[in-house]
Design a protein around this nucleic acid. Structure first.
Length: 295
DNA sequence: AAACAGGGGTTAA
DNA sequence: TTAACCCCTGTT
Protein backbone atom coordinates (compact mmCIF):
# COMPACT_ATOMS: atom_id res chain seq x y z
CA UNK A 1 0.00 0.00 0.00
CA UNK A 2 1.22 3.46 -0.78
CA UNK A 3 -0.20 6.39 1.16
CA UNK A 4 1.22 9.88 1.29
CA UNK A 5 -1.34 10.76 3.90
CA UNK A 6 0.04 13.32 6.33
CA UNK A 7 -1.62 13.72 9.68
CA UNK A 8 -3.17 17.12 10.36
CA UNK A 9 -1.70 19.02 13.29
CA UNK A 10 -3.81 21.09 15.64
CA UNK A 11 -2.63 23.99 17.77
CA UNK A 12 -4.32 26.80 19.64
CA UNK A 13 -3.60 30.45 20.42
CA UNK A 14 -5.76 33.44 21.35
CA UNK A 15 -9.07 31.83 20.52
CA UNK A 16 -7.74 30.57 17.21
CA UNK A 17 -7.32 27.01 16.16
CA UNK A 18 -4.53 26.50 13.69
CA UNK A 19 -4.57 23.42 11.52
CA UNK A 20 -1.50 22.50 9.53
CA UNK A 21 -0.95 19.76 6.98
CA UNK A 22 -4.60 19.94 6.04
CA UNK A 23 -5.40 17.96 2.92
CA UNK A 24 -8.39 17.84 0.61
CA UNK A 25 -9.73 21.13 1.92
CA UNK A 26 -10.63 24.27 0.00
CA UNK A 27 -12.90 26.96 1.41
CA UNK A 28 -14.39 27.99 -1.91
CA UNK A 29 -15.11 24.39 -2.90
CA UNK A 30 -16.66 23.61 0.46
CA UNK A 31 -18.89 26.63 0.76
CA UNK A 32 -19.85 26.98 -2.90
CA UNK A 33 -20.70 23.39 -3.66
CA UNK A 34 -24.30 24.02 -2.68
CA UNK A 35 -24.59 22.23 0.62
CA UNK A 36 -24.91 25.24 2.92
CA UNK A 37 -26.32 28.74 2.81
CA UNK A 38 -24.94 30.67 5.75
CA UNK A 39 -21.26 31.19 4.96
CA UNK A 40 -20.23 34.46 3.38
CA UNK A 41 -17.01 35.06 1.56
CA UNK A 42 -15.16 38.16 2.77
CA UNK A 43 -13.04 40.48 0.65
CA UNK A 44 -9.85 38.90 1.93
CA UNK A 45 -10.96 35.43 0.83
CA UNK A 46 -11.88 34.26 4.31
CA UNK A 47 -15.35 33.04 5.20
CA UNK A 48 -17.56 33.94 8.14
CA UNK A 49 -20.58 31.89 9.07
CA UNK A 50 -22.78 30.77 11.90
CA UNK A 51 -23.36 27.16 12.91
CA UNK A 52 -24.24 25.61 16.24
CA UNK A 53 -25.07 29.14 17.47
CA UNK A 54 -21.46 30.19 17.05
CA UNK A 55 -19.94 32.73 14.72
CA UNK A 56 -16.79 31.40 13.12
CA UNK A 57 -14.27 32.94 10.78
CA UNK A 58 -12.09 30.67 8.75
CA UNK A 59 -9.04 31.47 6.70
CA UNK A 60 -6.81 29.29 4.58
CA UNK A 61 -3.31 29.57 3.20
CA UNK A 62 -2.34 26.46 1.25
CA UNK A 63 -2.44 23.55 3.70
CA UNK A 64 -2.81 25.78 6.75
CA UNK A 65 -6.32 26.54 7.94
CA UNK A 66 -7.19 28.84 10.84
CA UNK A 67 -10.48 28.79 12.69
CA UNK A 68 -10.91 32.16 14.39
CA UNK A 69 -13.03 32.94 17.41
CA UNK A 70 -13.20 29.41 18.79
CA UNK A 71 -11.59 27.10 21.32
CA UNK A 72 -9.95 23.72 21.37
CA UNK A 73 -12.96 22.41 23.21
CA UNK A 74 -15.37 23.60 20.50
CA UNK A 75 -13.06 22.33 17.82
CA UNK A 76 -13.05 18.85 19.32
CA UNK A 77 -16.77 18.80 20.06
CA UNK A 78 -18.13 20.65 17.03
CA UNK A 79 -15.89 21.74 14.20
CA UNK A 80 -13.85 18.59 13.77
CA UNK A 81 -16.98 16.70 12.85
CA UNK A 82 -18.64 19.66 11.10
CA UNK A 83 -15.77 19.82 8.60
CA UNK A 84 -15.73 16.05 8.33
CA UNK A 85 -12.08 15.71 9.35
CA UNK A 86 -12.62 12.10 10.22
CA UNK A 87 -13.07 11.20 6.57
CA UNK A 88 -10.24 10.36 4.18
CA UNK A 89 -11.17 12.28 1.03
CA UNK A 90 -8.03 11.30 -0.79
CA UNK A 91 -9.08 7.70 -0.66
CA UNK A 92 -12.64 8.53 -1.72
CA UNK A 93 -11.43 10.51 -4.72
CA UNK A 94 -9.13 7.72 -5.74
CA UNK A 95 -11.96 5.23 -5.66
CA UNK A 96 -14.36 7.48 -7.55
CA UNK A 97 -11.69 8.20 -10.15
CA UNK A 98 -12.12 4.73 -11.60
CA UNK A 99 -14.89 6.49 -13.47
CA UNK A 100 -13.52 8.98 -15.98
CA UNK A 101 -16.26 11.55 -15.39
CA UNK A 102 -15.68 11.46 -11.64
CA UNK A 103 -11.96 11.69 -12.23
CA UNK A 104 -12.51 15.09 -13.82
CA UNK A 105 -15.13 16.14 -11.30
CA UNK A 106 -12.99 15.26 -8.29
CA UNK A 107 -10.02 17.08 -9.77
CA UNK A 108 -12.20 20.12 -10.35
CA UNK A 109 -13.69 20.17 -6.86
CA UNK A 110 -10.67 18.66 -5.17
CA UNK A 111 -11.15 20.49 -1.87
CA UNK A 112 -14.80 19.69 -1.33
CA UNK A 113 -15.85 18.32 2.04
CA UNK A 114 -19.35 17.36 3.03
CA UNK A 115 -20.25 19.34 6.12
CA UNK A 116 -22.10 17.62 8.94
CA UNK A 117 -24.75 20.20 9.63
CA UNK A 118 -27.38 20.64 12.29
CA UNK A 119 -30.49 18.68 11.42
CA UNK A 120 -33.16 21.27 12.10
CA UNK A 121 -31.37 24.01 10.19
CA UNK A 122 -30.83 21.65 7.30
CA UNK A 123 -34.49 20.66 7.22
CA UNK A 124 -35.70 24.23 7.04
CA UNK A 125 -33.01 25.34 4.60
CA UNK A 126 -33.81 22.67 2.09
CA UNK A 127 -37.56 23.11 2.42
CA UNK A 128 -36.87 26.70 1.46
CA UNK A 129 -34.65 25.60 -1.42
CA UNK A 130 -37.51 23.99 -3.34
CA UNK A 131 -38.01 25.65 -6.69
CA UNK A 132 -35.94 28.60 -5.58
CA UNK A 133 -32.62 30.20 -6.44
CA UNK A 134 -29.60 30.40 -4.18
CA UNK A 135 -29.45 34.17 -3.59
CA UNK A 136 -33.10 34.15 -2.56
CA UNK A 137 -32.69 31.03 -0.42
CA UNK A 138 -29.87 32.75 1.45
CA UNK A 139 -31.90 35.89 1.86
CA UNK A 140 -34.91 34.05 3.28
CA UNK A 141 -32.77 32.09 5.74
CA UNK A 142 -31.01 35.27 6.76
CA UNK A 143 -34.27 37.03 7.45
CA UNK A 144 -35.53 34.06 9.41
CA UNK A 145 -32.46 34.17 11.64
CA UNK A 146 -32.57 37.94 12.06
CA UNK A 147 -36.20 37.84 13.12
CA UNK A 148 -36.20 34.79 15.35
CA UNK A 149 -32.62 33.84 16.13
CA UNK A 150 -30.37 35.08 18.92
CA UNK A 151 -27.86 37.86 18.41
CA UNK A 152 -24.19 36.97 18.17
CA UNK A 153 -21.77 39.89 18.12
CA UNK A 154 -18.49 39.31 16.37
CA UNK A 155 -15.91 41.71 14.97
CA UNK A 156 -18.22 44.71 15.17
CA UNK A 157 -21.03 43.00 13.33
CA UNK A 158 -24.17 41.25 14.50
CA UNK A 159 -24.84 37.70 13.42
CA UNK A 160 -27.77 35.50 14.33
CA UNK A 161 -28.20 31.91 15.39
CA UNK A 162 -30.65 29.66 13.60
CA UNK A 163 -33.97 29.73 15.48
CA UNK A 164 -35.09 26.43 17.03
CA UNK A 165 -38.53 24.91 16.28
CA UNK A 166 -40.04 26.47 19.39
CA UNK A 167 -39.24 29.96 18.10
CA UNK A 168 -40.97 29.15 14.82
CA UNK A 169 -44.06 27.91 16.61
CA UNK A 170 -44.06 31.06 18.70
CA UNK A 171 -43.78 33.20 15.58
CA UNK A 172 -46.76 31.45 14.04
CA UNK A 173 -47.73 31.34 10.40
CA UNK A 174 -48.33 35.07 10.42
CA UNK A 175 -44.90 35.79 11.82
CA UNK A 176 -43.31 33.46 9.33
CA UNK A 177 -44.91 35.32 6.46
CA UNK A 178 -42.37 38.06 7.11
CA UNK A 179 -39.53 35.95 5.79
CA UNK A 180 -41.17 35.99 2.33
CA UNK A 181 -40.74 32.29 1.74
CA UNK A 182 -43.99 32.16 -0.18
CA UNK A 183 -45.92 28.91 -0.08
CA UNK A 184 -43.05 27.33 1.86
CA UNK A 185 -43.89 29.08 5.12
CA UNK A 186 -46.62 26.62 6.03
CA UNK A 187 -44.19 23.76 5.36
CA UNK A 188 -41.68 25.29 7.73
CA UNK A 189 -44.33 25.67 10.38
CA UNK A 190 -45.44 22.06 10.10
CA UNK A 191 -41.83 20.91 10.21
CA UNK A 192 -41.44 22.88 13.45
CA UNK A 193 -44.37 20.95 14.89
CA UNK A 194 -42.74 17.66 13.95
CA UNK A 195 -39.41 18.64 15.46
CA UNK A 196 -41.02 20.03 18.57
CA UNK A 197 -42.98 16.85 19.17
CA UNK A 198 -42.24 13.61 17.34
CA UNK A 199 -38.70 14.21 16.06
CA UNK A 200 -36.96 15.17 19.26
CA UNK A 201 -33.19 14.92 19.71
CA UNK A 202 -31.72 11.56 18.81
CA UNK A 203 -34.93 10.40 17.12
CA UNK A 204 -32.96 9.45 14.02
CA UNK A 205 -30.12 7.79 15.90
CA UNK A 206 -29.59 4.29 14.63
CA UNK A 207 -32.06 4.59 11.79
CA UNK A 208 -30.71 3.61 8.40
CA UNK A 209 -31.17 5.49 5.13
CA UNK A 210 -34.54 4.00 4.23
CA UNK A 211 -36.09 4.35 7.67
CA UNK A 212 -34.85 7.91 8.13
CA UNK A 213 -36.11 8.90 4.71
CA UNK A 214 -39.50 7.44 5.40
CA UNK A 215 -39.72 9.53 8.56
CA UNK A 216 -38.61 12.74 6.85
CA UNK A 217 -41.14 12.27 4.05
CA UNK A 218 -43.93 12.55 6.62
CA UNK A 219 -43.29 16.27 6.68
CA UNK A 220 -45.16 18.34 4.16
CA UNK A 221 -42.69 20.18 1.99
CA UNK A 222 -40.11 17.42 2.16
CA UNK A 223 -40.13 15.29 -0.96
CA UNK A 224 -37.60 12.93 -2.46
CA UNK A 225 -34.88 15.44 -3.27
CA UNK A 226 -35.07 17.53 -0.11
CA UNK A 227 -35.11 14.36 2.00
CA UNK A 228 -31.97 13.14 0.26
CA UNK A 229 -30.20 16.43 0.96
CA UNK A 230 -31.09 16.23 4.64
CA UNK A 231 -29.97 12.61 4.81
CA UNK A 232 -26.66 13.47 3.18
CA UNK A 233 -25.83 16.73 4.92
CA UNK A 234 -27.18 16.13 8.43
CA UNK A 235 -27.80 12.47 8.99
CA UNK A 236 -24.46 11.14 7.72
CA UNK A 237 -26.10 9.06 5.00
CA UNK A 238 -23.25 9.28 2.51
CA UNK A 239 -24.96 6.84 0.17
CA UNK A 240 -27.66 9.45 -0.44
CA UNK A 241 -27.60 10.83 -3.98
CA UNK A 242 -29.89 13.89 -4.26
CA UNK A 243 -30.97 14.50 -7.84
CA UNK A 244 -31.76 18.12 -8.60
CA UNK A 245 -31.90 19.77 -12.01
CA UNK A 246 -28.14 20.21 -12.16
CA UNK A 247 -27.31 16.64 -11.22
CA UNK A 248 -29.98 15.41 -13.59
CA UNK A 249 -28.46 17.43 -16.42
CA UNK A 250 -24.88 16.41 -15.73
CA UNK A 251 -25.81 12.74 -15.43
CA UNK A 252 -27.79 12.80 -18.66
CA UNK A 253 -24.99 14.65 -20.39
CA UNK A 254 -22.22 12.23 -19.43
CA UNK A 255 -23.96 8.89 -19.03
CA UNK A 256 -27.14 8.81 -21.05
CA UNK A 257 -27.23 11.34 -23.91
CA UNK A 258 -30.98 11.54 -23.49
CA UNK A 259 -33.52 12.56 -20.91
CA UNK A 260 -34.03 10.21 -17.98
CA UNK A 261 -36.48 9.87 -15.17
CA UNK A 262 -35.13 10.95 -11.80
CA UNK A 263 -35.73 7.53 -10.31
CA UNK A 264 -33.74 5.92 -13.12
CA UNK A 265 -30.83 8.25 -12.46
CA UNK A 266 -30.98 7.38 -8.77
CA UNK A 267 -31.02 3.68 -9.48
CA UNK A 268 -28.08 4.04 -11.87
CA UNK A 269 -26.13 6.09 -9.31
CA UNK A 270 -26.81 3.70 -6.49
CA UNK A 271 -25.49 0.89 -8.63
CA UNK A 272 -22.47 2.89 -9.77
CA UNK A 273 -21.39 4.79 -6.66
CA UNK A 274 -22.92 2.80 -3.83
CA UNK A 275 -21.82 4.00 -0.39
CA UNK A 276 -19.92 6.89 -1.99
CA UNK A 277 -23.01 8.26 -3.75
CA UNK A 278 -23.20 11.40 -1.68
CA UNK A 279 -19.60 12.36 -2.32
CA UNK A 280 -20.03 11.66 -6.03
CA UNK A 281 -23.12 13.84 -6.09
CA UNK A 282 -21.30 16.80 -4.53
CA UNK A 283 -18.38 16.62 -6.94
CA UNK A 284 -20.79 16.30 -9.85
CA UNK A 285 -23.06 19.11 -8.70
CA UNK A 286 -20.17 21.50 -8.23
CA UNK A 287 -18.62 20.50 -11.52
CA UNK A 288 -21.90 20.89 -13.40
CA UNK A 289 -22.83 24.23 -11.89
CA UNK A 290 -19.46 25.90 -12.12
CA UNK A 291 -18.88 24.64 -15.67
CA UNK A 292 -22.52 25.03 -16.69
CA UNK A 293 -22.52 21.51 -18.07
CA UNK A 294 -25.60 20.38 -19.92
CA UNK A 295 -27.06 23.83 -20.55
C1' DA B 1 -43.17 50.35 -18.09
C1' DA B 2 -45.59 46.20 -17.64
C1' DA B 3 -45.46 41.44 -18.58
C1' DC B 4 -42.93 37.18 -18.47
C1' DA B 5 -39.98 33.24 -17.34
C1' DG B 6 -37.68 30.50 -14.29
C1' DG B 7 -35.39 29.22 -10.09
C1' DG B 8 -31.23 23.13 -6.06
C1' DG B 9 -39.24 20.78 -5.85
C1' DT B 10 -43.57 19.33 -3.74
C1' DT B 11 -48.27 18.66 -3.61
C1' DA B 12 -52.74 17.54 -5.04
C1' DA B 13 -55.64 16.19 -8.66
C1' DT C 1 -48.36 12.70 -15.40
C1' DT C 2 -49.18 17.62 -14.89
C1' DA C 3 -50.24 22.26 -13.35
C1' DA C 4 -50.27 25.36 -9.54
C1' DC C 5 -47.72 27.21 -6.00
C1' DC C 6 -45.30 32.46 -3.37
C1' DC C 7 -41.93 35.53 -4.28
C1' DC C 8 -37.91 37.60 -6.27
C1' DT C 9 -35.00 38.83 -10.03
C1' DG C 10 -33.43 39.35 -14.58
C1' DT C 11 -35.07 39.74 -19.25
C1' DT C 12 -38.33 41.29 -23.08
Amino acid sequence: MCYNYIVMKISEYNNNIVLTNVSDFNLENIFDCGQCFRWERQNDGSYIGVAFSRALKITQNADTVILHNTTRDDFDKIWFNYFDFNTNYDKIKQTLSDDSVLKSATEFGSGIRILNQELWECVVSFIISASNNIPRIKKIINTLCELYGDKIDYMGKTYYSFPPPQKILLAGIDGLAQIKAGYRDKYIFSAAEFFNNEFTTSYFDGLDYDRSKKELLKINGIGNKVADCILLFSLSKRNSFPVDVWVKRVMEYFYFDEEQKIEDIQRFSKEKFGELGGYAQQYLFYYAREQKIGL
